[in-house]
Design a protein around this nucleic acid. Structure first.
Lengths: 371, 371
DNA sequence: AATCAGTGTGCGAACGTTCTCACATTATAG
DNA sequence: CTATAATGTGAGAACGTTCGCACACTGATT
């Protein structure tokens, strides 16, 4: 066992050695209130000699600020969250804040647990990718208790807090428009599209038709479907529900299966649009397994730019989400709120870049025009 | 500004409502010491009604335990650390611990800052991928103060603490042996190989010759070079220093440049062994840019298995590091130490798997120069 | 000479828990 | 019936800081 907790040096001991009160020593070391230069030097010297290190726990207990931000990510192992975290981390570190990290696995129960832990640890703020856009009583409670919340990647409709997203809707519409411009008429979509409160895909298409949807508070994959539908409508092309590959779960296996379904259709799509990185990898695997040539047999644009897309031949065109930017922006919003910034909730929609590569070509099976 | 810090419910208020002392309420809610069932119910009811949530800061201040583990990763954005973190996170979460995450960017100054912050925040332990295997006074100090440390990915020689690594040496030797078995005689290595305390590559080769090296306390890329050299020696093949691509820095650009150097050699290697994921991606990019066919023109084995290696054609053979396992193991060692486990430092060397794929072939009979 | 603002210091009370002790009460054994 | 142990409770002191207040000293302005 030995001596576990070595004799920690406290302010009191430093004060004693410097011959001042603990209050004075505290003022010098904590850098608040008044103190003479002479005293400052004396105290600092004593602290140095004793190897004093402040106990931030005690400070936090009294100030009510921990200089720690809680983050609830979906899965830190995914490139998406890893990059976002990097952004968050860079900005917060520069401001002297620490980061308490948790994973929700996009499950509400995990998220609840995580939020509770973080709040009990008295984080100064919460950056979260909410796993459920409706059941968010815990987030409302957090806000009500005066703990700033910043949403990432998706917004909770009735939660009036800052949020940072990517403009999925526009980016997706743009991708489809490019495929359409290249002559494609049958474009397959492979997307997660997990449960939507409004019902199934057919319901969603109807809702898009009536324009009754608030695109901003949908899950990203639904936003991307929204953009897909809009682009087709703009081009006056029909939306064939059979071309909408709803994977239903965030799994590479399921995505591969759905991709194969699309590619085995009698009237198969001439272009494919996997709506995120995982779907892209799964789709790519299915495509190579079927020995389809890109772009001759199939054009491809992916949402999310993974490293391999730039160095396989041909390169795969992709939407490049500004992930670290997103983390940085979220962190900055958070720091501003912690600093006491007041005002209406800010919702940032970052504009992704587009990486043009050789995966788009005119469809081979050219429709023969009526003569 | 409004009411920032909403009226938090404390144990005292719960106690008052339940009609008991704070000590008793504390015992019930903190689940320590004795208390009657009847009292327990009463206190819990009062706590429930008031919406009491414990303040872990206060608890930690007095118990001296924060149930938080500090992690110093190199760069959370890299798949390596992201996966390791996932493992750490899973194990610690199950034990009710939080994770305070920092990035060092493999820079000692950042690491020092990070360790200081974490320690001031009174973490119960430190899991760290040390960025410098010699200048580690801060780690020695941490250990001396009774704060458990677990090393990840590389070991500090004179620091007697637990550590979890991958058996780079054996894995690398195995890869080279496979290439040799396939008939390769000139095998190129592309590795980071940043500063080594003993000097340059020539010095290293001499040191290997004399057997004066402790492979376990080298940086991974040097360990992999060690394995490379050993495998060649075992096969009685010469070690040509020109085939050792020392990138010198952890950069894709530099790795690409080094790869190109190797591939443009008059007597160029017939097989390539990029010694980690970043090097692999950079090498792959260079290879495709030169329109070399794998495995006809060049055989390839990579250290680190990236997702694209399995679905491009041909697949790329790779060493699969057990990354989350590594994180999990580190976390478990840490929890054991925190629980008071005594005993000599444990150093785990995890065995990587090998993913056999179609990137290895016999070298083409003769290199025919263009005429 | 009196007033004031600015500067500098120490005492003791916070912060919200747990811990140590003293002291009841009850159960078990001799 | 006593001795011993186990169980249960509360008062008050920790933990290591910061904060409010009282007071003291300076110098400039009335």
């Amino acid at each position: 066992m030995s001596d576990r907790q070595r004799d920690k040096i406290t302010i009191a001991e430093v004060a004693k050695r410097a011959g001042v009160s603990t209050a004075t020593a505290g003022r010098v070391l904590g850098d608040y209130g008044y103190s003479r230069q002479e005293i400052k030097d004396k105290v600092r010297k004593a602290a140095e000699e004793l190897g004093y290190r402040p106990n931030l726990l005690a400070r936090s207990l009294i100030t009510g600020k921990t200089k720690t931000i809680g983050v609830v990510a979906g899965d830190i192992q995914s490139p998406f969250y890893a990059s976002v975290m990097r952004g968050v981390s860079d900005v917060t570190r520069a401001a002297g804040f620490g980061i308490l990290l948790t994973n929700s696995d996009e499950r509400l129960d995990r998220e609840l647990e995580a939020v509770q832990l973080l709040r009990e640890k008295q984080v100064d703020g919460l950056i979260i990718a909410p796993s459920d856009l409706t059941g968010s009583a815990h987030l409302h409670a957090t806000v009500r208790d005066g703990c700033p919340v910043v949403l990432i990647d998706r917004l909770v409709r009735d939660l009036a807090v800052d949020g940072v997203c990517v403009d999925n809707h526009a980016a997706s519409r743009d991708c489809i428009a490019r495929l359409v411009a290249a002559g494609h008429r049958r474009i397959g979509l492979v997307a997660e599209l997990e449960g939507w409160e409004g019902g199934d895909v057919e319901d969603f298409l109807r809702a898009v038709e009536t324009g009754s949807l608030d695109s901003a508070t949908l899950f990203p994959s639904w936003q991307r479907l929204y953009g897909y539908v809009e682009a087709l409508k703009e081009a006056r092309l029909p939306v064939d529900p059979a071309l909408i590959g709803r994977v239903g779960t965030y799994s590479a296996e399921a995505a591969g299966k759905e991709t194969r379904r699309l590619l085995h259709m009698a009237d198969r799509p001439t272009a494919l649009f996997p709506a995120d990185g995982l779907m892209a990898a799964a789709a790519m695997e299915a495509i190579t397994a079927l020995h389809l040539q890109i772009p001759e047999d199939l054009s491809l644009i992916c949402f999310d730019d993974l490293d391999w897309m730039s160095f396989i031949r041909p390169g795969i065109a992709a939407v490049v989400q500004p992930l670290t930017d997103m983390g940085e922006a979220a962190a900055r919003l958070m720091l501003a709120r912690i600093a006491g910034e007041d005002g209406p909730p800010q919702r940032l929609a970052l504009k992704p870049k587009f990486a043009e590569r050789g995966s788009i070509a005119r469809p081979r099976a050219v429709e023969i025009p009526p003569s």
